[in-house]
């Protein structure tokens, strides 16, 4: 079959897909006068980035996001691992039914319940704290589901061998199940890092100070549809905020893509 039209379609679509991003990059690395004028020899500058960095506490926002993501992913690993292990290795009467109940959280995401969850967090006295951003997401049905799948494929003989040596339930989990599910942990971890680095609505509602706001909420200051917007500043701020994840993605592209693939296979 002729590959030329296929190549042509693929490459035009790919070009179309990166165009908005390239356009923003073009504006961010040129002086304001070149904002929307194409001149291949326009002088390059990093001045827009410097101006943004000095105008907004981006360093603090990055730190907040980093703390949030680390806290969320580690807690999810622990909580979902324990639950999945219980479902796979210690089934009891009603545990299948209980698992179905867990899956409800796949449909009813915390965002849908934000009015009530805001009230709950307020009652706990946790408004405007980083744990408050994380709490509704920690018992992730998706995580329990994925780890359950991974643990189910662990050979029973390994489990029994470890028990013969006198290992307790937690020791068996730690020595047999967790190491064999390593690739699932990587996959789930990367998907969750991307999800929580990018999460916006719930953090917007629950935070209201520089000390807790993640980068997405901090960036919102720049999105105002008004006349006379300083486009180079907006694009520079946007690119600055996505830079860490984008660079990490470009370096570990293969792992990222494979992780997302793995997370989707059931």
């Amino acid at each position: 079959m002729n590959r030329v039209p296929l190549n042509l379609i693929a490459w035009s679509l790919a070009l179309l897909w990166v165009l908005p991003l390239l356009y923003a990059i073009w504006t961010a690395i040129h002086p304001p006068v070149y904002a929307a004028r194409f001149d291949l020899f326009a002088p390059l500058t990093l001045e827009n980035f410097v101006r943004v960095w000095n105008a907004v506490p981006f360093d603090r926002y990055f730190l907040n996001t980093l703390m949030l993501v680390v806290f969320v992913v580690i807690s999810q690993f622990v909580i979902c691992t324990l639950a999945a292990y219980a479902f796979v290795v210690f089934p009891f009467r009603g545990s299948d039914w209980l698992f179905m109940l867990v899956l409800v959280q796949m449909m009813v995401k915390p965002e849908v319940l934000l009015v009530r969850n805001y009230a709950t967090i307020a009652q706990m006295g946790l408004l405007d704290t980083i744990p408050a951003i994380a709490l509704p997401y920690l018992a992730s049905a998706f995580g329990i589901f994925l780890f359950r799948q991974a643990f189910k494929s662990v050979p029973r003989e390994l489990d029994e061998a470890a028990r013969m040596e006198g290992a307790g339930p937690l020791a068996v989990l730690w020595r047999v199940y967790v190491p064999l599910a390593r690739s699932t942990y990587l996959a789930y971890g990367l998907v969750m890092v991307a999800y929580h680095w990018n999460n916006f609505l719930w953090p917007l509602i629950i935070t209201n100070s520089v000390a807790t706001r993640p980068i997405t909420v901090g960036l919102q200051v720049f999105s105002t549809v008004e006349q006379g917007i300083d486009w180079p500043t907006v694009t520079a701020a946007t690119l600055l905020s996505v830079a860490p994840l984008l660079i990490a993605f470009l370096i570990f592209q293969r792992q990222f893509v494979q992780s997302f693939m793995r997370a989707g296979i059931r």
């Binding site: 897909w17 990166v18 990018n198 997405t216 960036l219 996505v242 984008l246 893509v257």
Partner: peptide, 11 residues
């Protein structure tokens, strides 16, 4: 094709 996936919606 994949790059938009890892960008925050707000960006």
């Amino acid at each position: 094709f994949f790059t938009p996936t890892i960008l925050p919606m707000i960006a």
